[in-house]
């Protein structure tokens, strides 16, 4: 072994050890690293009322009830992860992205009659779709944003705004590789 080879193995060994240590540490603290807990976790073991938790999930379609007390709007809605649902009560202005079927993170605490949020954050997914394409998908009945994520991207991601305006259904969207003239 030359000195360079020895140094190379030394560097590899150090990085491997460090990586393993970091991985173990992240694994150990995994429950603290998660940004929010899910409704089924809350349902399984409700956190004490004096502890602030972040509850994340999808707003159940049709569950949003808005009322007004004086100037402050009050909203009630159910948040679900598909297995359990928790009712959230929030006083204040909801973010622009808030809608039924949207993912949200509610910051607050669990009370007897449900979750009381002091802050509601909207979480959007990784789907980026032109407005017109979304309209076309909704019109053709392929997708209702209130009931879940959009259909598989392959079915619409080559669909351009022009196609959508022409009212082409998503499945016959031309397979043109590059809508470069957009």
């Amino acid at each position: 072994m030359t000195r360079k080879t020895r140094r190379l193995w030394l560097v590899i060994a150090c990085v491997a050890c460090l990586g393993a240590a970091a991985a173990l540490m992240l694994k150990a603290f995994s429950s603290d690293i998660v940004f929010f807990v899910t409704p089924s976790q809350v349902a399984a073991s409700a956190p004490p009322a004096d502890r602030t938790v972040r509850l994340g999930g999808m707003v159940v379609a049709g569950s949003v009830k808005r009322e007004k007390r004086g100037e402050t709007p009050i909203a009630r809605f159910d948040v679900t992860d598909g297995q359990a649902a928790v009712t959230v009560r929030y006083e204040g202005i909801l973010p622009d992205l808030f809608r039924e079927g949207q993912s949200v993170v509610a910051v607050g605490s669990m009370h007897k009659d449900g979750f009381v949020a002091s802050e509601v954050l909207a979480k959007h997914d990784e789907t980026y779709m032109p407005k017109e394409v979304a309209e076309a998908l909704k019109k053709s009945g392929k997708w209702d944003p209130r009931f879940g994520p959009p259909p598989s991207a392959a079915s619409w991601n080559s669909m351009t705004v022009q196609d959508a305006k022409k009212g082409l259904p998503a499945s016959n969207a031309p397979a043109a590789p590059a809508p470069a003239g957009n």
């Binding site: 997914d125 990784e126 789907t127 980026y128 779709m129 991207a153 991601n157 669909m159 351009t160």
Partner: peptide, 19 residues
């Protein structure tokens, strides 16, 4: 709170090709 990656090595991008 941050969304997952839209462009991955394994799957089709979940993003309109016009973007």
């Amino acid at each position: 709170l941050h969304q997952p990656d839209s462009i991955t090595l394994t799957g089709a991008p979940t993003m309109s090709s016009s973007m």
